[in-house]
Design a protein around this nucleic acid. Structure first.
Lengths: 214, 214, 214, 214
DNA sequence: GATGAATGAGGGTTCATTCAT
DNA sequence: AATGAATGAACCCTCATTCAT
């Protein structure tokens, strides 16, 4: 069996085992057994538990990022871009719960080197959202003229908003995975309503997409 | 030295060690040393590493819940109640980062028994939020009559919204802890804007509290 | 059983096992078993295989050095001092063959850190011999006046001579240990004859102590 | 590439690796890599690590023995024969430090089978020296008549003297290898002075070759 | 009430060795 | 003739846990 194939089997086994049992609780014996190979082979190909874990994190990070990137509809309004990105995000996390666990939970709980790696993806997602709502805000701002009160959110505020949105998405990803019957689509719809309309307007019965101010 | 006091010192040491090093990486030796007692004493009082961890989770859960409960202003409008609860939440997590790490990260990453315990608190917070916005929605609904489109969110939708809000709060808690210069107050304000106004209205320069429809 | 006693038992077991099987071939399990304790206890007291080995080297080095130092008769002529030192040296090595193996063979064959440690003792012995024959040479030199040819050995030559003498002693130590019936005393006598008289004079039937030039 | 050539490359690599890293620390992977061939080929040609090591020892032993044998000037007096043999010995060890390490250090530190093999060469060298000084002694003895005191050394004493001389040579070989600036020639001269003249006469300023009693 | 002393069990890692091709 | 692929066995080390005092 060629090396590349075996290597992927091992990483699959590792992601699955790390994701379910946790980084420390997963033994290299476990992983080798799940992969259907001997332990020395895992070491031959992937060097050490740490490197294997890092490799898993990177692979899952790349996969998630690519899924989201591929899902975002380019050239449309900010809310539509967000909506499409969220759809891809929830579709991916729902379909790869172990990978999501590695990325979102395990990598962030077992020490700096791993956390740093996981932070990279998250930071990219946060940056994407920040840029998205930043652009939308500036656009709205110019179309409005300097009115009283508020104005476009400052950079610092944007950062916080993006953190909030990403956190909400992470939470809903777990909700969709754990709650039977909740689809990726529903999660995306829920989050669009929540984030774009806000509870205030939701109370009034409005839903996204609104009768469209834009 | 009375037992109760010794016990609290041990739990303090445990929360600190678990929170910083992680459940698996923290050894009973470490904890005993940080607590300033001998290891057998830890076992005498707290039986096993698992029980000790569970005890930590429960204690921190109770503390957080009490802080939030005490912080919520009773008898005011939903948004004000939320605002006061968030303020208390961020104040507590910011002041007890190790406890928050135990609760939010460690407990949820190291297997079922612990995750279940941590899920309890989270579920309570989610339930609180659900009930809050549910009440607000019903109230708004009756004052409006059956108009076209939408209406009050269904229970299932409320659950999702609450998940989103709690996730956003968790994310901002981490943001406030890790980012120097971000205060609990700022986190709360950011989240109020995000959740109550929604990005849509924020883009238009509005901020919470709005010129107030209510 | 008090810690100090256990610790000595472990080091005895370690010296014996390292000395007979070699550093790498001796497993910590072996050593623990020979010592009659569990493996973790060995680690508790002595930290690691490397540290244990270093500790063995140091202990055996100190023992050998003390034996020789205690054996050298002070204040007598150089040849008598050498003879007494050699007696003590061979007596010690013959009685502690495992310690001698650790010091002379194992420590010098398994990497820099250990070799450096072993080199210390050897260097001290070489220095002792160098100083001994150096003093004797200077003494003989002054009593002679500048005659033709030769003169007292230069420093560089002294160093080589000391190396040769110590090497001869090491060789005879192994010879005495391995050859049944060869006593420490005989080894010492042989080496005195060889080193002090030289083969040239031995051929002529002379033996040490000579009819005494000094 | 013919088998014989490949085989020599492997043994060169093995001697180098064993000599520098030590028998246990040298892995078959290392050796194969240094040799520039695949590991199974090493096994195909040399069967096992043990056999490979034995083969190395034998080869280096033969090389050393041949160098010394070729170096000894035949038909001259004993001291001149010794001197020529020592010259060859130091020249060879100085030029082949890895082989010397294998022979003198590694082979003797890693268990019986190897030590036995190394003992063979050493015994041959010892035997050569024994026979050399034995012949010289008998010769001197007959030319002297039974005088008082001593007489020619007994066989047992000769054995010890040879051990001492060989040990001194081994020590000086290491000294010459490790000390920059010390040549094989100097080592040989030092040892001739030490062994043939003895410290006693050296102290008096004499050097070898003496003004010659013979 | 408190601890010094001790261990069973298991995890990460390496290595000599062998097939199938 | 030569090798890429694979593994059984062992080794160093750590840790949760328990006695005897």
């Amino acid at each position: 069996m060629p090396r590349a194939v075996r290597e992927r089997m091992m990483m699959d086994a590792a992601v699955r085992t790390f994701g379910r049992r946790g980084y420390r609780a997963a033994s290299m014996d476990d992983i080798a057994e799940v992969a259907g190979v001997s332990k020395p082979l895992v070491y031959l190909y992937l060097n050490s538990k740490e490197e294997l874990f890092i490799a898993c994190i990177r692979r899952e990070a790349a996969a998630l990022l690519e899924a989201v990137t591929a899902g975002v509809q380019p050239g449309v309004s900010a809310d539509l871009q967000l909506r499409s990105g969220l759809g891809a995000f929830f579709a991916h996390t729902t379909e790869h719960p172990d990978g999501w666990s590695v990325l979102h939970r395990q990598a962030r709980t077992h020490g700096e080197p791993f956390a740093r790696e996981a932070a990279k993806v998250r930071d990219e997602l946060v940056a994407f959202v920040t840029q998205l709502i930043g652009a939308a805000a500036r656009e709205a701002d110019t179309g409005r003229g300097a009115g009283p009160g508020g104005g476009a959110p400052a950079d610092r505020e944007l950062a916080g908003l993006a953190q909030a949105l990403v956190g909400a998405a992470e939470s809903l990803a777990g909700w969709a995975i754990e709650t039977p019957g909740v689809s990726a689509k529903e999660a995306a719809a829920t989050l669009m309503n929540f984030s774009w309309m806000g509870l205030g307007r939701l109370m009034d019965g409005e839903r996204w997409p609104a009768t469209a101010r834009r």
